[in-house]
Design a protein around this nucleic acid. Structure first.
Lengths: 184, 184
DNA sequence: CTCCTATAGTTAGATTATCTAATTACATTG
DNA sequence: CAATGTAATTAGATAATCTAACTATAGGAG
């Protein structure tokens, strides 16, 4: 969760915007000799951009009183609604977080009646989790805005730029998911 | 903060990896008619990638017992070390967070002797914040790894891909920073 | 020169998303 | 059937954020 200060006061004294170049100079001075500076620069901008994108999405979802993590989980349940068994463990595994973290999310979602937890008859230790009708309704309310926010992220890019960007990004993301061992 | 499960147990039953296509199908069904689906798709992948990149960097920084937010602040102080006056307010303004959030970060950093807070003589309400010698040492220890992590993010891409990617990314990030009103 | 108000910083208290460790309950297997 | 493994939860912690309230100082209006 981050950003979106409503404006506290307008401060008089300010720090100047330095831009990218001081970071690059610092990098030149402090990077190990076997680090490719161009790649590092690119990675840094990617990191900053990722941060900004997360912020944008958070801000938009705030209107629906939900966070990206929770929407993520609801979508996961949506897309696996046909599965006989969806347990907190398997959710944790898929999301790359601990079971206890999933429990916390589920408690919140259940309190709002967005999901249902049902004991699993075939194995008394397990619980089946599914999205509720209310949950589906909420998701359907959120998604049009969510997709339009996603689209707006890359608004500035023209068709051609989008095309090359997409190609490279898909490759990049695949490699990251592989390295993290996580992914959809 | 996210991800990095050490492995709790290996769960037997798992949720299948669905990949991107069910998300796209869902999008086709639920996006408003004035949303460009290609753009939305691209934005979605961008969001996922951003998430993964954040995770990678977090994991690497964890070894130094510091988080991205805190390193960010230390770098900010580093780069403004020549300024006569750097206040919590101006930091909050630059980082796009509230003053009270900055206070929390500063308390942590000060406890570890990474920064120094000095009363500002010319205005008794203000405090000048600067990075300490210890802080500078830590930053110098972290940066080589940090840059190499940044570089490794885009390892998979060849020279040519990096070049187009960079061009588009810079443009994209500039537009996001403008929209968020934040930025370096 | 004193009083009001604006500003800077902090504190108090809350939320969200994580984690680890401990606990509870059920299942399996020797 | 007792020991051990697994699923889920609970308890308690940390990090990063927020809003609201508070304290202290500054600066201007009488």
């Amino acid at each position: 969760m981050k950003r979106k200060p409503a404006k506290e006061y307008t401060t008089e004294q300010q720090l100047p915007r330095l831009g990218t170049s001081p970071y690059l100079k610092l990098m030149e001075r402090t990077a190990s000799s076997d680090t490719n500076l161009n790649s590092a620069h690119l990675g840094l901008i990617m990191l900053w951009t990722g941060d900004n994108i997360l912020d944008m999405v958070d801000i938009d979802l705030a209107a629906f009183d939900i966070t990206e993590s929770k929407l993520d989980l609801l979508l996961l349940l949506s897309l696996h609604a046909d599965q006989e068994l969806v347990t907190p463990s398997s959710i944790a595994d898929r999301l790359g977080i601990r079971r206890s973290s999933v429990t916390a999310l589920l408690i919140w979602l259940e309190k709002k009646n967005l999901i249902v937890r049902e004991p699993y008859a075939k194995d008394g230790r397990m619980t089946h989790v599914r999205i509720s009708a209310e949950g589906r309704t909420l998701v359907n309310q959120i998604l049009p805005t969510f997709w339009s926010t996603c689209a707006s992220l890359v608004d500035e890019l023209n068709k051609e730029e989008q095309a090359v960007f997409q190609k490279v990004l898909v490759k990049l993301n695949a490699s990251l998911e592989k390295r993290l061992g996580s992914g959809r």
